[in-house]
Design a protein around this nucleic acid. Structure first.
Lengths: 347, 347
DNA sequence: TTGTATGCGTTATCAT
DNA sequence: ATGATAACGCATACAA
């Protein structure tokens, strides 16, 4: 037995009307008599009629669904963001289809293809750590797909962007170190191509400069796989900790880098922050429950998701092409448990 | 400008063929001449033709999409599970539509409605903490919707179920306490209706019984909101810790309960495990990075998601009704960082 | 081997 | 005020 939903045709047959009459009655058309309307509406309600969204999509040439491309669902930042996207989508009658790039460029391309072939009305995307070339995005966008660039934004104009102020976040985190007496601060960043990486590294170097600390180029380290692979982070850490210019603090520039640095320190019995200072980007809701003195940079993921979804849906539903493109930049928060001092920066 | 995809009609027109010929050529039908096939395939490839899945859905009466209903996406257990579901779905050509109940019974009903109205081919669902009555599920299932009961399973037969051995998990966790010298162990569980709650409480009481420890009924505590709300957990904790029979250990029976208990202990300056033992269910990948002596019960969420998706898709694609229903029960793992002793139980 | 016609559920455009 | 028909993109039974 297959799940069969009731259709307009069924209602029409049951009530001895034509499909068009039923359709109009359901849409509360003025040309239908009150009695007929009443009859139809009642029957529809009783039989739990729902318009078939697929048929609707075919007719309207829109699917009422939006695609989301992230590197990894099971990453607290993205799952919170999806949560936000989902909430707006639900409100506006869209459903959300999720695809993952797993930080892989090829998979990113095929995922975008997949979403496009699924006839989504628009796509919210965050590029993979491997992505330095945006032509696949530009091609899709150029062909008229509605798109919003999210978190790891693309570097071309004329597209809505939603991100956080990574420069400021890294600047504040680095300043936090300096104020607490650390001076040889290493920065372990995501892949160098990424917008977020560039901005964070810039914030980091600017803070050093502004506090008259000489930048050691060896202190800027990149993870090609976004910190996803423990071994990569461990090797970077190992190399840094065994160098003669051993850092006394680490700025971990992503969720996964943060946890993997912590894991490395645990395995190597390196005490935080006694032996090594650590400030990490992290969106876990355990933020304030982690190792006592870990300071965390958290991003307003849920809010970002909501904003991205709102922009996308506005774009989808606007008749004429967008002229003004938004570049929404939100502030991060620096949480430090030990001092219970909470810095909150609004842009 | 709207995103316009190329259709079979376009190909037919361009090549001077009929739509049916093109359709057959694309499906590699034996009745089409190799030359025509060649021509069509080439043109399709060059113009990046993708069949319109919406039209296909309308025709085939299936949408190649599966719905997932969970209480909360941004919960590591469920996001990992969705990850597993997603991976299987992708492999088999399905997309995944996600809906959240937010532990609310009404929202659960409307979400199921929503998924059904979206013409999903099947639904993987985990009931909300408020759900004691399954008639809405049974009704949908009875009307022929393919469904797989996940994690918080329903108590009626003839439906595929995927869950973990909660009894054993709680039994082991409780035993772990007893072996470490705790005796007045409280169990903070999820809503009493839930299958997972009943099983966990049973495992807990069985372990006490088997070790000749008298059960104090006041030590079994329920969170109506699945631990989602901090205040609820804090009140339960506060009440317990201020009673004369103050427990010396807590078994926290969900992700959120665990983190909220930790949060409470932190706020109250209760040292774990010095002043209070704690074993918590948790699927955060920080498991081994948490407070040093927290012992964690983790669930194979990703694997569970994969299995559920496989079962569902098999059900969707099977012609005849299923006779044998699977009840897959996986083992949890008890991680204890301090002793680095790892217990692994396979069923 | 290829073309024509039909239908999936819906709505818009014509009739009546 | 209501009904008949066409169209959305595709697959397929039926014709040729």
């Amino acid at each position: 037995m297959k799940f069969e939903a009731i259709t307009i045709k069924d209602i029409a047959k049951a009530l001895g009307l034509s499909t068009s009459t039923v359709s109009r009655a359901l849409r509360d058309s003025y040309e239908i008599s009150p009695e007929t309307k009443q009859k139809v509406l009642l029957y529809a309600k009783e039989n739990n009629y729902r318009p078939n969204p697929i048929a609707l999509s075919l007719k309207e040439k829109r699917s009422s669904s939006i695609g989301v491309l992230v590197c990894e669902i099971a990453n607290s930042f993205f799952s919170q963001a999806i949560n936000g996207i989902e909430s707006v989508a639900q409100e506006k009658g869209y459903n959300v289809i999720i695809a993952q790039s797993k930080e892989d460029f090829e998979k990113e391309i095929s995922s975008l293809q997949y979403l496009a072939s699924r006839s989504v009305d628009g796509i919210i995307f965050s590029v993979s750590a491997e992505t330095s070339d945006f032509s696949h995005v530009q091609q899709l966008y150029g062909r008229g797909m509605n798109m919003v660039s999210f978190d790891r934004v693309v570097d071309f104009p004329d597209i809505h962007k939603v991100s956080v102020d990574n420069y400021k976040a890294a600047y504040e985190a680095t300043t936090h170190f300096i104020k607490n007496g650390f001076s040889n601060i290493a920065c372990i960043a995501n892949a160098a191509y990424l917008s977020i990486t560039k901005e964070r590294v810039e914030g980091y170097t600017a803070a050093l400069r502004d506090h008259n600390i000489k930048l050691d180029p060896n202190n800027i380290l990149y993870c090609l796989h976004g910190g996803l692979i423990y071994e990569e982070v461990a090797e970077i850490m190992s190399h840094a900790m065994n160098s003669k210019q051993k850092p006394d603090a680490i700025l971990a520039c992503s969720d996964k880098i943060t946890t993997n640095v912590m894991r490395y320190c645990q395995q190597q019995n390196i005490a935080i922050p006694k032996q090594l200072g650590l400030v990490g980007f992290s969106n876990l809701d355990l933020t304030d429950l982690l190792a006592p003195s870990l300071t965390v940079v958290s991003q307003p993921a849920y809010e970002m998701g909501r904003i991205a979804a709102e922009l996308l849906i506005k774009q989808i539903e606007s008749k004429r092409p967008i002229k003004e493109f938004e570049d929404v930049v939100l502030a991060t928060e620096l949480h430090q448990r030990a001092s219970s001092e909470k810095k909150k920066a609004k842009l």
